[in-house]
Structures are given as C-alpha cells and as structure tokens.
Amino acid sequence: MAVADVPSAPPGCELHVWPSGGLRSIYHGWLHGGIVDGAVKGRDGYPEVPADPVDTAQQLAMIRAAALQDVFTRTDYAVVIHDTPQSTVTIRQNPARLTASTSTCYAELIFEDVFFQQDVVNGGSLKTLIRFRDFGASDRFTKQFGTWAKTPLLAFPPKEPARNAEALAEIRAAFRSNIFEFAGALRANETAGGKKKK
C-alpha cells in the first residue's frame, strides 16, 4: 500500500519511494570474513547484532520524517511512500515505472540495500545503496543515479546488552544521515550534468 504524504502538492509531480528489505551485513577480519549476512544471521565468529535494527518499518518511519520533497529540492512533488520493498532484480532490470501512475512529472527513489560493514582496519559503518530514477512524462526512466552513502559507526554493534539502546540509536541516526548524504550526491550529479550513472 502507498500513502501520498503531500496530497496538497500541485498535480502532475510524484516522487515514489520504496524502503529496503532490512539490514544486511558483511565482516572482514584477519582470519575470516566476507560471508554476507554472517553477523545478522548470528554466524559463529561474527559480531553479535541486535535483531532487525533497521528493518523496513524503521526505515519507513525515518523516510517519512525526512521531508524528502525538501531534502531533494523537489518541493512541488507529492511524495508517495510504498510499504513493500522492491526486489533487486526488478530494480536493476526493469527500466519502466514501478507503479501504474500516469503522472507527467514522475520520479522514483529506491532504497536498494542497507549494509552493516565492519572490518579490522576501518571499523564499522552503515552503507545504504540508494537509487534515483527520473522519468518526466516518459514510461521509462530518462535519468538514473545510484550510489552508496556511508556513515561510520562507533557504538554499533553493542559491546554489552546494556548498550543496546545507544547502539540502535546510532545506527538509525546513520540511516537518516545516509539519506542526506545521498541527496547531496544527487544534487552534485545533477549540477554536473548527470554524467554518473549506476
């Protein structure tokens, strides 16, 4: 189900937004590493991670609180937030609109992946792969920009249960920070003429 968060916006412009399916992880140590989701699945030898620290529901709450039409300098767009994540295959292989909207001013913002990354050299960080697709009045996107946004983590994962609340607050703040980092990268790309595409 989708909810139009800015129903009073002028007709014709829509920004459709999808969250990701939840936190994934990758860890690199001296003696082992590289197993995707080792931490979030509780594999032996991987850092212990609280269950669902940035799940779809949490993402939706933070996306709604971010005032995306202002963050992405598209104040005339009605923001339509969808509850169900899109599959990676659909995102990467389908150039058409992901909705049945016939808006003549249409764009999509897709949170594709959210990763907790930790290694012995650089420490921990939250990485979010976000993709923006601009269609205008077309049925297929005419411009696409996607990149990773990254925020360092110091308290996550928690060293002890008593620090769970601090760790969860940090990783959720990192998710919000990544939204703004991506918005800045998108603006820079658009200013440069949209040369970088992924």
Rank of each mutant, 00 (worst) to 15 (best):
A155M: 11
K143C: 06
K150P: 00
F156T: 05
G136M: 13
P152H: 02
F135H: 07
F156Y: 09
R131K: 09
P161L: 11
Q118D: 07
A149N: 04
F145A: 12
Q117Y: 11
K127Y: 01
E160W: 07
T151W: 07
F111Q: 04
F132P: 07
D119L: 06
A137V: 10
K127I: 04
K159R: 09
V121Q: 03
D119I: 05
S125I: 05
K150F: 00
F156M: 04
W148E: 08
R163P: 03
I130S: 00
G123H: 03
D119S: 05
Q118W: 12
A149H: 08
A165W: 09
D113V: 11
G123K: 03
F115T: 07
D113G: 02
T151G: 03
E160A: 14
F116E: 00
G136T: 12
T151E: 15
Q117S: 09
V114H: 02
T147D: 10
T147N: 10
G136Q: 13
D139C: 09
Q144F: 01
T151S: 14
N164S: 14
V114T: 15
Q117K: 13
L126Q: 04
A165E: 15
L126D: 04
T142N: 14
V121N: 04
A162N: 06
I130H: 05
V120Q: 11
G146V: 01
T142M: 12
T142S: 14
R133K: 15
L153V: 04
W148T: 10
E160I: 12
P152R: 00
A155K: 13
D139F: 07
V114L: 15
K127T: 12
S138I: 03
L129V: 14
Q144M: 10
A162R: 11
D134H: 10
K159M: 04
E112G: 03
V121S: 01
V121Y: 02
F145V: 12
S125K: 06
W148C: 01
F135K: 02
P158A: 10
L129E: 10
F141Y: 14
F132G: 08
A149G: 06
P152I: 01
F132D: 06
F145L: 10
K127S: 14
G124C: 09
G124Q: 06
R140D: 09
E160V: 13
L153C: 04
A149R: 06
N122D: 09
L126K: 07
R140A: 10
I130K: 00
D113S: 03
F132K: 01
A137R: 12
Q117T: 03
F141T: 01
Q117W: 08
F116L: 13
T142H: 05
L129H: 15
N122W: 00
K143N: 01
V121E: 04
G146A: 13
R163Q: 15
T128N: 01
D113H: 08
I130T: 13
S125T: 08
F116M: 06
A137D: 14
